[in-house]
Design a protein around this nucleic acid. Structure first.
Lengths: 298, 298
DNA sequence: GTGAAAGCGCTAACAC
DNA sequence: GTGTTAGCGCTTTCAC
């Protein structure tokens, strides 16, 4: 033991992994790291798995299929113990990976449970329903929606459905001109709001499916002297820091990205111990009321 | 080869690494991943090293010494090929690591070159000098500084020095009450601005050492009906997306965090091939003029 | 208890 | 060229 200290001996984890068939590393595959959802998520994963000796292998795909495939293979070659992935474009390869690799896998923020893959997500349709309901309760009826791309199941389709559901339930019709599809960027929010303001009968409120687009929408109003919330109410989704930093501070649907990470980390850890399987975890959400919603007296 | 396909054979990179003494992974150690500087930096690293077959091992330290030490050791145990680190608190251990581990290392956004460690950074004092100089040229003389914590060499001390240097050179005195030290948070910017507005002779402009604090400062002004830039000019530093998303859009010193990553990736790659050593790379910066600076006629 | 040996899956070096 | 073997640094097994 004295010799160990004197020579500065460091055990070789590679050799150990070779015999133990366990690398103590978990792979995290995401499209982008500079993102208000993915980066706290990664932190959440790190926080829980590091307590059990695991470290992270980061796979940034930039949303490219080729990189997704490359990293999926790398996960196998490097004998990764488990993987959590999010924001995947092409589900087919993931399913194949899940079946053939034998590596425990959990998916975050995406619907995969139909394929027997454990996942953690929020209830997007319920959350969008809640946001819309809130606008309705404040007396708004001419409510528009700036949605995320509808090919995106969670942020796009599900939130779109939740919006429609609330409107339908309240018995208020929604005009086609009030339904606009953005592309996630602040700029698309800006342009969508420009369109909305050009409609003959302008809406009194808009639900924007992501905060980044909502800030763009807000900026259009600010830049054109349209009072918020006096002339137009606004509620976003995600409650990223930006929502509270902007003025007027924006109403939003709060979710906790770090919680997605910690929950998926826990799920994966359980999978690695062969405990349970095929679970689906739903993270709670809540409305955050700030300055961008006006109460209308009908 | 047919058999290979039929059996779905995957080579075992662990075994390969054991004999090759090369893991093709590079370690990235940062305090926080949800950060407008670190996350694009990581992306920059990934983009260049992935082209050469390397992947990333992510070490998130949360600024804790214990985690820094743990990961430094893990880097050795896991036979990481190279490491890039940023935002390190305790330099002593890094130096020791650099000398004893034999693992190529590059440091980003921090001054380490005195210790023979390759680094990439901007010229913080020059950048702060330029920002201050710009304010001076616009006719301002009562200029305040909201600095980052002065224990931080790059964002704190260096930018502080650059500010003073420009003021001294212009021959304009700076009052003690105009020098406030923030803590990086938007809220500290908010409170610092409150202090500044309470001074008998209010400044006409303030240079804020980071955009996040600058947004806090801006919000104080907005919340208290103080016109920006009519009554108070503002320039931030970093040019994070937030700076352009806020209204009025903020002037800032632009740096390209991704470039820090790609440059450090290139440097590390060179080190791994035994090309050069002990280099120091300086990333250029530039002023971004938006809506928060007023021109004064003296 | 302490010590020697086998083997994890690969690559390199050596034969044939 | 094709085939065999040694050995990377560790853990586990088996003998003593």
């Amino acid at each position: 033991m004295q010799i160990v200290k004197e020579t500065g001996y460091q055990p070789n984890a590679i050799a150990r992994s070779l015999v133990n068939k366990q690398t103590l590393v978990i792979g995290v595959m995401i499209p982008d790291i500079g993102n208000d959802f993915f980066s706290p998520m990664v932190r959440g994963i790190e926080q829980v798995v590091s307590q059990f000796g695991y470290s992270l292998f980061l796979a940034i795909t930039e949303g490219k299929l080729e990189k997704e495939l490359k990293y999926l293979q790398l996960f196998q070659e490097k004998q990764i113990d488990g993987v959590v992935l999010s924001g995947v474009q092409y589900q087919e390869h993931i399913r194949k990976f899940a079946k053939e690799s034998g590596i425990p896998l959990v998916v975050v923020g995406q619907e995969f449970s139909a394929h027997q893959i454990p996942s953690v997500d929020i209830d997007n349709v319920k959350a969008a329903y809640d946001a819309t309901r809130f606008l309705l309760e404040k007396g708004h009826e001419r409510i528009a929606l700036i949605s995320a791309p509808l090919i995106d199941r969670s942020a796009g389709r599900d939130r779109y459905e939740g919006f429609l559901q609330a409107m339908r339930e309240a018995g208020v019709a929604v005009r086609d001109a009030y339904l606009i599809e953005g592309d996630f960027s602040p700029n698309s929010g800006y342009e969508s709001m420009r369109q909305l303001c050009g409609v003959e009968v302008r809406p009194t409120a808009v639900f924007v499916a992501t905060d980044r687009m909502a800030v763009g929408a807000l900026n259009y109003l600010l830049d054109h002297g349209i009072g918020v919330p006096e002339e137009m109410s606004l509620i976003g989704f995600d409650d990223i820091e930006l929502a509270s930093l902007v003025r007027p501070a924006m109403c939003s649907v709060h979710i906790e990205p770090m919680q997605f990470g910690s929950e998926s980390g826990k799920l994966l850890l359980a999978l690695l111990k062969d405990e349970m399987t095929n679970t689906r975890i739903t993270i709670p959400h809540r409305l955050i009321i700030r300055q961008t919603i006006k109460t209308l007296n009908k």
